[in-house]
Amino acid sequence: MANLRNNRRGRRKIVKTTLIYLSTIIAVIFFIFPIYWLVATSLKTRAQAFSTPPLFVWEPTFRNFIDIFLKRQTEIEAITGQELELATGAEIFFYNSFVVTFSSIAIATVIGVLAAYSFSRYKPAGTSTLMFFILSTRMLPAIVVAIPIYFFYRSLGLYNTYIGLILLYTMFNLPFAVWMMKSFFDEVPRDIEQAALVDGSNPVKVFYKIALPQVLVGLGATIGFLIINVWNEFLFALLLTERATRTVPVMIAGTRGEVGINWGLIAAIETLYILPALVLIFLLQRFLLRGMTFGTVRGVK
């Protein structure tokens, strides 16, 4: 009798485990497939990319990745609808994206960390109002500020400049940096900093010798999200850049659906473009929820 019950329980457990794995596999396939297909397409020749029915088995080629950076200027121009400076390949877009991302993140991180520390530790008058205001900029639709900024930039000469784009991205990522870093600073026990004050460190030293080392992991996560944010931004890059400063997303979006374009090459460019995200998803996994909610929800174990 007991044996029978054990058997039944055991069988039910096997069924449950099978179901779990089956659903997990289906879920993973659903969410990973487009990315897989993108990478797969980047390894196909033009003819293979166009095959009907779609090709599941083929001999991969790295030709597309080489072509991105070699002098296939006319083809890149044709595909992306962008006129290129002199004899460059698509690397110019990556270079632009890199410059803009790196600079704006450096500035946003420094300014954001300082402000976050102040909000977290000293809670100066108006902190909650300011924090709420900063958060509300997350809800602000980009298109609403896009109109005035477009005209400002035109009249101030910031249009089609690195500095203009960097300034803009710094600003748009500042709220995130502040909220995120504040949530990490909030977790540093006050006693540790007070102990350092009593031990003879002034507030400036307490900040960089005691507080900052406690939030290094959080700082890394914050920077990771900032990279994604800036790297992925499209609307302002579209409105505010021209040949000299075009970033990757604008180039990719320029690939209009003309017949006969080389999807393999586009897929290769896109693969390179989303590569940082594919790497960062593994590093940021633990902080994903926290990052996507500005640090207000602390996340999954």
């Binding site: 990973i32 897929a267 996507m292």
Partner: peptide
């Protein structure tokens, strides 16, 4: 979980353009 959450970080532009390929009427 990591694999399933990957789409969250992928650039929207890349998502849009690539879905055009996935949805393409012929191939």
């Amino acid at each position: 979980i990591t694999l399933v959450t990957t789409p969250l970080l992928v650039a929207p532009v890349a998502v849009g353009i690539f879905h055009r390929y996935l949805f393409d009427a012929t191939f």
